[in-house]
């Protein structure tokens, strides 16, 4: 069975390389080893979203039972999104679980993930904290997501106000990423974030 998996990935790999999405730099796929079991994906943040202009890297592991079971995909790049864990990068997307179909390919998976960045599903969250913010404070969520895209995904939009708050907490001796997570979690309220970090 490993044979059919490797053969198919070879074909899919060629398909992705030739696809017009690669030509337009929307998606990218790289091999990590010669056995076609581990790949690195890359998707561009879709326009008109807080992720616009960012580049998000993905870790793709092909199971031996591929394509009868879905590939294991997670974000390497840290991202603030209701359906993606801000801690582990784990993705909550139905086609990577029970809605997988054997005719889907790595190309369609990458495009689906891009679509997920455009249209979050806060009612089926992976990260409950992000999902709550998405539902209750949409503008704070957008700012936070933009900030994370700028910091971790080479995004173009700086959020100077948020950066100042992060450096303020850093000045208090907290590690930068932890400070950012605490502030993001506490809707950028410095007092609450400090309490959160201490507790």
């Amino acid at each position: 069975m490993a044979n059919i998996a490797a053969q198919r990935i070879q074909r899919e790999f060629r398909e992705v390389i030739k696809s017009e999405e690669v030509a337009k730099c929307h998606i990218k796929l790289e091999l990590k080893n010669d056995e076609y079991t581990e790949l690195k994906g890359e998707i561009a943040g879709p326009p008109d979203t807080p992720y616009d202009g960012g580049v998000f890297q993905l870790d793709i592991i092909i199971p031996e039972t591929y394509p009868f079971n879905p590939p294991k995909v997670k974000f390497i790049t840290k991202i603030w999104h209701p359906n993606i864990s801000s801690v582990t990068g784990a993705i909550c997307l139905d086609i990577l679980k029970d809605q997988w179909a054997a005719a889907m390919t790595l190309r369609t998976v990458l495009l689906s993930l891009q679509a997920l960045l455009s249209a979050a599903e806060p009612d089926d969250p992976q990260d409950a904290v992000v999902a709550r913010q998405y539902k209750e404070q949409q503008s704070v969520f957008r700012q936070t997501a933009k900030h994370w895209t700028y910091i971790y995904a080479k995004g173009p939009h700086r959020e100077a106000e948020l950066e100042a708050k992060v450096s303020q907490l850093r000045g208090m001796g907290f590690e930068e990423h932890k400070a950012r997570v605490a502030l993001s979690t506490c809707d950028w309220n410095i007092q609450r974030a400090t309490d959160h970090l201490i507790s």
Partner: peptide, 18 residues
């Protein structure tokens, strides 16, 4: 086999792509 795929994918299996 690479150029063949381009021209002749109509009768390929949707699972193994062969």
């Amino acid at each position: 086999s690479i150029p063949d795929e381009e021209t002749n994918g109509t009768y390929d299996c949707n699972i193994c792509l062969d």
